[in-house]
Amino acid sequence: MLDKRFVLLSNEDNVFVCCEQVFAGDEVCLEEHSIFIKTDIDVGHKIARNELPQGEKVIKYGAPIGSTTQSVGFGEHVHMHNMKSDYIASHTRQRRSGEE
């Protein structure tokens, strides 16, 4: 079963989406396995449904939404620090992704 703080949007997805904030150290049940979450995860953010090797397509809504730039462990936060667009760079107030 899946912790109620996360949702799986499509069966093909390799990420879960957070529906209610979880904090580092919280134990969550992600289908067959329970793990301790390593970092705070806010609503709307993604964590890995399984281990994702570097260069893997990230699947959400059953569709590819980018690729990992490094390997991501099961249950770890998937975001700009470890994935990128396959089309066009994203940006924050401080920097564009992929730039130092």
Binding site: V43, V58, I65, G66, H79, M83, K84, D86, Y87, S90
Partner: peptide, 14 residues
């Protein structure tokens, strides 16, 4: 968008 958990243009698009 990024602070709210969206990582890429295509994710936002979907």
């Amino acid at each position: 968008n990024a602070e709210g958990g969206l990582t890429t243009q295509e994710e936002k698009s979907m």
